[in-house]
């Protein structure tokens, strides 16, 4: 392996890093908002909400992300239902849609399991004090649930970051696509792919650090 070729590739591939990062950021923000709504629906006492949220999780955790991505990019333009007459998305938009749905489905489970893991005695104590549910969810239950959610939430976020590489297949110019362009010109597969792996590793490391910091922030004082 020629290390010089690895180093030389890094700045070239890095040009796609901002696309990788913004795909991740968009999907994480939109997906987390969706996940929070889905988790609260799943825990609601209103049955249709629970059914919808459970169905969403079943469907979008059960289908490969690549198929979601192909659907958003290739199939949506042909979609005709009612007033909707085909939705044509840019490659980047299609990738954000697919990745957001994927994130929402997975993070909803993380949020839900974090909330139900909190001791039911906490809700009881809040109720006995006359607190309304919205108040004690926000002040008592969710802050304690977050502590439980951090590790699996971060794992999913890291998976999301790596899954953005699939956007290559709908021609989003992110890191993996730029790497492919490089090695299909010069056939230096080992060096170019090693450089790409290093860059993903550097980016996922950010999440590892964020996890450590947030875990420390939310740790209970003993």
């Amino acid at each position: 392996m020629d290390l010089d070729l690895v180093w030389e590739a890094i700045p070239l591939i890095w040009k796609g890093a901002s696309t990788t990062a913004s795909l991740t950021a968009w999907a994480l923000v939109l997906g987390t908002i969706g996940a929070l709504i889905l988790a609260l629906m799943r825990l609601s006492s209103i049955k249709p909400f629970r059914w919808f949220a459970a169905g969403f999780g079943w469907l979008f955790r059960g289908i490969p992300l690549l198929i979601l991505l192909f659907f958003a990019f290739f199939a949506l333009p042909d979609l005709n239902i009612g007033i909707v007459d085909g939705i044509l998305l840019e490659p980047f938009q299609a990738a954000v849609v697919a990745l957001s749905i994927w994130t929402a489905a997975y993070q909803a489970e993380v949020i839900r399991s974090g909330i139900i893991a909190v001791d039911p005695g906490q809700a009881e104590a809040s109720e006995a004090l006359g607190m309304a549910k919205a108040r004690y969810m926000r002040r008592i239950i969710i802050p304690q649930g977050v502590r439980i959610m951090i590790p699996p939430y971060t794992s999913n976020a890291m998976t999301l970051l790596k899954q953005t590489s699939l956007a290559t297949l709908v021609t989003v110019p992110e890191m993996t696509l730029l790497t492919q362009r490089l090695f299909s010109n010069d056939f230096q597969f080992r060096e170019r792919i090693a450089a790409l792996a290093l860059l993903y590793l550097a980016m996922t490391t950010v999440f590892v650090v964020i996890q450590q910091v947030t875990e420390r922030t939310f740790r209970l004082k003993v």
Partner: peptide
Amino acid sequence: IREAREHIGMVFQRFNLFPH
């Protein structure tokens, strides 16, 4: 019910203090 609970204090076997 919430209004009534304001006037009824309860102490639990396992304390149920808010740990955070």
